[in-house]
Design a binder for these strands. Structure first.
Lengths: 229, 229
DNA sequence: GGATTGTAGATTGTCAACAATATTCTGTTG
DNA sequence: CAACAGAATATTGTTGACAATCTACAATCC
């Protein structure tokens, strides 16, 4: 029974963000910024008052965050910011790497001139940031680089999962000041990813994308001084 | 600040499933059984009355399902059962295959005698089901086989994702009556998975697990008569 | 006759109050 | 003084009501 698309489109354009979404985003921000620490409880009353809404939207937002893995609900006790074990974190890194590989592989099969140029430009900009010793800028560009790949890949579900996994990883709150050599190495990997995408080589792009993300796991293992898988 | 375990245990025992969870499970069941068709709206009032609860829990449950990908919420219009495009479905099959591969690989590194024996037993039982021409039983055992791998893998997040992706795939409501030759082939792949796990060969187990799940995608492509990736 | 506008009904969004449960505090007892 | 019992408090679970918004239909105008 689908009517004219023009109507549906205008409806979609007119729709405004419901309060629940606003609340969810704000809670997510608070958690990711460490304003609510892992293991801490999300007090519905306090949050509702603080955000100027009633408890309903806060509860709905919390359910949303629960499915995303950022919080855990316990019956009659409340929802708590998730506390990651080392094993959890290692698994998250694996999954994120897999997802990144998939996104890169998907993009390799469909990248047009615009996104290719954009990715090349980002890699060069990161080179300049390294040369200028601007780690903060490198960090931002790096984020943008991976976001653009995810968006342009056309793999909507994978992009959403990748994004959620990145957020979950941030629950660890690891300080990853990398230093110049590490940055240079990282951008070299970016270059390999772009090369594989431009060559239309999906397998190589998958491998390059996944491999690049496995560094996070390696750093974590170095930090805690283990040497296992 | 942990007090005696006896108290904590009794608390854990006493806690009952909140209404939201019950509602979520019921809604999920209705959607997966096609009682609410893709594209259809979830009427809060009607569902609340039907389930004997108020709209609050229904709304929270819907948010939960939204994150899981089974429904989609539109502001001021309601939440709708997600309608999958062919592209969506293909992506889901890919992601599920990846996740299954990861689970098999993880299990290869930690499978003890009990789970090995259990998996072997399931494969043999599936053989017998094929011989008896009991497709329904094969279907159940197959589900159990993959569930047990997911549980025993120890990869909690991956297991949850795998489970969610399986549910999403079911939104397609594809009839997959396979016929005996296809079943035989499928169980042969199961055997390969178990062999790789028992050999402790993570790479082989990953490949076998992923490969096995790519059949679903092939069947879908056959069905719609395409030959692309 | 077709398009537009206005109105009525249905539905979602939000809230505040009440009930059920968990946590904390305090006094008592062995 | 430690452990327990019970009250007091805080917090979550659930509900029904009200406001905002959308959808469908009918009356009006060109």
């Amino acid at each position: 029974m689908q009517m004219r698309d023009t109507i549906r489109e205008s409806v979609a354009r007119r729709r405004q963000r419901p309060l629940v979404i606003e609340v969810r985003d704000e809670l997510e921000r608070m958690i990711l910024h460490g304003e609510i620490a892992p293991g801490e409880r999300l007090n519905e009353n306090a949050l509702a008052e603080q955000l100027g809404v009633s408890r309903g939207p806060v509860r709905e937002a919390a359910r949303s965050l629960e499915r995303e893995g950022l919080v855990q609900a316990v019956a009659n006790q409340g929802v708590f910011v998730r506390k990651l074990s080392i094993a959890d974190a290692l698994e998250l890194y694996d999954l994120r790497a897999m997802m990144a590989g998939y996104l890169c592989g998907a993009l390799a099969g469909r990248a047009d001139g615009a996104i290719r140029a954009e990715l090349r430009g980002l890699v060069e900009a990161m080179d300049r940031a390294i040369a200028a010793g601007d780690e903060r800028r490198y960090f931002d560009l790096n984020l943008q680089f991976h976001d653009r790949i995810a968006e342009a890949s056309g793999a909507e579900r994978a992009r959403a999962l990748y994004s959620a996994l990145c957020k979950e990883v941030r629950l660890m709150r690891l300080r990853v000041l990398q230093g110049e050599p590490s940055l240079r190495q990282s951008n070299e990997e970016h270059r390999r990813i772009v090369a594989a995408i431009e060559a239309g080589d999906a397998a190589a792009a998958t491998a390059a994308g996944a491999g690049h993300h496995e560094n996070g796991k390696k750093r974590l293992l170095d930090t805690i001084g283990q040497r296992d898988t």
